[in-house]
Design a protein around this nucleic acid. Sequence first.
DNA 1: ACCGGTACACGGTAACGCTAGGTACCGGTA
DNA 2: TACCGGTACCTAGCGTTACCGTGTACCGGT
Lengths: 115, 115
Amino acid sequence: MGNQMTEMLKGTLEGIVLAILARRSAYGYEITAWLRDRGFSDIAEGTIYALLVRVEQRGFVDVEKVPSEKGPPRKVYSLNAKGRDQLAEFWRTWSVLAERIEQLHHNDNQHDEGA
Amino acid sequence: MGNQMTEMLKGTLEGIVLAILARRSAYGYEITAWLRDRGFSDIAEGTIYALLVRVEQRGFVDVEKVPSEKGPPRKVYSLNAKGRDQLAEFWRTWSVLAERIEQLHHNDNQHDEGA
DNA sequence: ACCGGTACACGGTAACGCTAGGTACCGGTA
DNA sequence: TACCGGTACCTAGCGTTACCGTGTACCGGT
């Protein structure tokens, strides 16, 4: 999609994926499809795989290889304790940023509504 | 500050600065101080100047050189029509992203409150 | 003569998401 | 048999962005 969303996803996409994995374990292809369904912009498949490699290397997730009847084996990722800490940290940072930005948004709208 | 905030600012910092300029014209040093006061993390001075050069080159702002009694002349930036369009686009993108992320946040908290 | 505050600018670095490919397994169809 | 499309994963190179450190310059006070 647009450039704007691409840049804004930097730093948040990892949190988004961790939040998804907090709900239930999943594999890359599944996560990509899930995001696409939710209209979470057109996130490239490769981006998700690269991100998953990153969070695995940082020890935020555990991985299990599970055979599939429809193709190559799936790599199923599960959020572990360290990952939950990271997710909590993500939410803290997000809250701070979102709050400050919303304040700007309100002030902005005050003097320039509907432009 | 933290890595997390640094990455999250990518893509949002430009919108933040445009929003500030929407309220009133300002120069780099002033914007930096403003952000620092608002606790908007410890944004590096150099970052703001680089960003201002960028938005100027894209034609989102008009610039006027104003002499200062306290040092070198100030470069005062004003948001123009194109910049207002860009800011509106920023808010649209932000709203979409923030809404989707908040949904994840709620779902996340449901099964893992206060962990 | 010196220091600190004001004000701007630049080069190199790291992180991130995107693009555009490639590999491999499988079932259905011509 | 040959081919295509869906499933599932991976990689290299690229552009954008924010950070760090440093440098320049103007000015007033001591």
